[in-house]
Design a protein around this nucleic acid. Structure first.
Lengths: 212, 212
DNA sequence: AGATGTGAATGAGTTCACAGCT
DNA sequence: AGCTGTGAACTCATTCACATCT
């Protein structure tokens, strides 16, 4: 099966919207209702969903609970996923707390840093380890996802270290162009780029819409 | 002029790559060299750049310094931009420190929160104010960009408050579907969505490439 | 010769519009 | 009657390939 990141990201959005409806006790919803309520496109919702099966009932719509279950399964959120954060500066630590070890499908399982001042500290219930420990700790704790929150200058070497430890999914906050490893998935989140995008549009008060 | 966010984000990337070359004392570069060095597409670089003028020299390439200057100007990074963060939890505070007040084109100029425990605290050189102060503080300090780092439940009302204060560019970290204001630009950065994307690909060890 | 700038071709993603099911 | 699922039409984006300039 082949699915674009765009479709995938929308599935996450749909799931979140459906959970909100579930909270409100809504049992069934049509693509049109869903679209109107959350500023989405009805046709797109239907097309996205049919990539993964025929979840709807013609003439009626979608049963919220069924769809939540299906999407949770498709996205792999019915299992727990442990993640490691490399670079426990303010951003890394904030992300660690953000993820936490609560009820969600994600848990913060290891934090690494190269700064001796940070090593040994506890953040969100986890003791920060030196980056040298990556190779051992990551397979030991069954960690599958790595978060890069290191300075750009050491981003590539840190990425390579994660690859060596067996990690194949990386969320990269470092503003660096990584030479990606074969078979790995990397999602770059470059906050400066987003700010710069906003600045560009600042100087043009003629536009309107909003981007996702 | 009409330019897609995709193109725009790439301009930011190009600019960063060019700055790196500049550091290394490189004076001139061709689109091919730039592409190979940073895993970009040469044709795309050329097409993106020509949206904003003919910066290159046929047969030679681009003069690094000229291009840096031009891109900086196009992106509006030759001016300083003040930003306000609403929601000074761990994420908001981390972002505040991240931006800081240093040499870059961005400066953290105001922080707001509704939690009395956070109000009055100093973060990255700025005293946190109550959200009620948004309407007054934002125009006073000439702030043009707002960062939403509040819980999803209050995202919409906080967004609306920013709009009332005159803000027209928002970076939204809240996992919420905002009803956007006419004429405003909103960039959603939903960290959970990115994690969920990675999880999906975890279960499919047949893939290879990396997404930007 | 060699690299840009650019129309033309291809590909990806979205929207339309309707057949088919409940 | 109403909504899904889906091919076809369309729009947006990328890549190709080459004429054009230095």
């Amino acid at each position: 099966m082949d699915v674009s990141p765009l479709t995938l990201n929308r599935l996450s959005i749909y799931l979140r919207c459906l959970r909100a409806l579930q909270q409100d006790g809504i049992v069934s919803v049509s693509s049109k209702e869903l679209a109107e309520k959350f500023h989405l496109s009805a046709a797109q919702i239907r097309k996205d969903l049919t990539h993964f099966g025929d979840f709807g009932i013609r003439g009626v719509g979608y049963e919220v609970e069924t769809l939540v279950t299906k999407l949770t399964e498709v996205l792999g959120l019915d299992k727990k996923h442990r993640l490691a954060i490399v670079g426990m500066g303010s951003l890394g630590s904030a992300f660690a707390r953000h993820v936490g070890n609560g009820g969600g499908p994600f848990s913060f399982a290891a934090g690494f840093d190269s700064d001796p001042a940070k090593i040994g500290r506890e953040v969100a219930g986890v003791v920060v380890e030196p980056v040298e420990a990556i190779a051992e700790t990551i397979p030991c704790r069954g960690i599958q996802i790595g978060i890069l929150a290191v300075p750009p200058a050491v981003a590539q070497e840190t990425y390579d270290r994660l690859m060596e430890s067996g990690i194949r999914s990386v969320l990269n906050f470092a503003p660096a162009r990584l030479r990606g490893h074969e078979g790995a998935h990397t999602r770059n989140v470059d906050l400066r780029i987003y700010l710069e995008e906003l600045v560009f549009y600042l100087s043009r008060s003629d536009e309107d819409d909003d981007a996702s």
